[in-house]
């Protein structure tokens, strides 16, 4: 029997704003199934976002939802979590939102290890404004602000999160919809700051300019270039060129921020 998503979707808010072929619908469905699997009450879930295509997602979801300013999803989420740690706080945003304008909030949320689950939708581009290059746009790619090809180096979001101190870091793609659900569930169950980087195609803003073919082709590209984390570990840098690891990339246990603060200041 098909899964019934309606329990978590707000009636009357669909259709969403995303383009045909966009991967974000796949992510939303995986997110719903994963949250459902955790059994957490909808009233206790807070979903925050910044600005951009990804950040429109909370508007469709039947939780306490906070659509904030560009890049600030995690800063608002931190306020919510510290003020009421009983809430399950999930913060999401796109690659530009989380790692360019919101980059400072991202690394400091990682460093604090505050109990927030963070999803970064990485489609290599600023989609909502029409296809400008972002910190994850591959070198030499075309964008509306890189008509001669992109001169910038790319951020590796997962490595950035690990380096900054996140205690659970994973990567997945919209091709891997079922494993994605499991990874999201693991991230939600993790105590501390968890990051899941989700690779998603943007046929309109990135694909067209960079001859990526149809949306289906873009998803197949993910399949072909994704390497399971345990296998990636065995491979040389040359073998991994142009490819990326998926699955759980980093998982450690460390004192959670609010609990550590409360212990430090003697709050019960």
């Amino acid at each position: 029997m098909a899964y019934d998503y309606s329990k978590y979707l707000r009636a009357g808010k669909i259709p969403h704003i995303w383009c045909p072929g966009c991967g974000y619908g796949i992510i939303m469905k995986s997110l719903i199934r994963a949250i459902d699997a955790t059994g957490i009450d909808k009233d206790d879930i807070v979903l925050t976002s910044g600005i951009g295509c990804a950040s429109r997602l909370p508007g469709y979801m039947d939780f306490n939802t906070l659509h904030t300013t560009h890049g600030r999803s995690l800063a608002f989420a931190t306020g919510v979590k510290v003020a009421n740690p009983k809430l399950k706080v999930i913060a999401l945003g796109g690659d530009g939102d989380m790692t360019a304008i919101g980059g400072n909030h991202f690394i400091h949320a990682c460093r604090r290890n505050i109990d927030i689950t963070c999803f970064v939708f990485n489609n290599y581009i600023y989609g909502m404004t029409g296809g400008q290059y972002s910190p994850t746009t591959p070198k030499n790619s075309k964008a509306t602000t890189a008509p001669y090809g992109n001169a910038d180096n790319q951020f590796d979001i997962a490595q950035l999160a690990i380096g900054a101190g996140a205690t659970f870091v994973a990567r997945t793609t919209t091709y891997h919809a079922v494993p994605m659900e499991k990874l999201i569930k693991q991230a939600l169950d993790h105590k501390g700051f968890s990051v899941v980087e989700i690779m998603a195609g943007c046929p309109t803003g990135y694909g067209r300019k960079n001859k990526q073919g149809s949306p289906a082709n873009m998803i197949l590209w993910q399949k072909e270039n994704a390497v399971p984390a345990n296998k990636a570990k065995e491979m040389s840098e040359e073998e991994m060129a142009g490819k990326f690891a998926i699955g759980v990339l980093h998982e450690v246990q460390k004192a959670e921020y609010v609990e550590a603060y409360d212990a430090q200041v003697g709050l019960k």
Partner: peptide
């Protein structure tokens, strides 16, 4: 609770977040 945020934008954002949490 008190938190020292990473910058002024974050401090304002977290203040609003705290109020939304009641």
């Amino acid at each position: 609770r008190f938190i020292q945020m990473e910058d002024e934008l974050a401090a304002m954002a977290a203040t609003i977040g705290g109020s939304i949490a009641g």
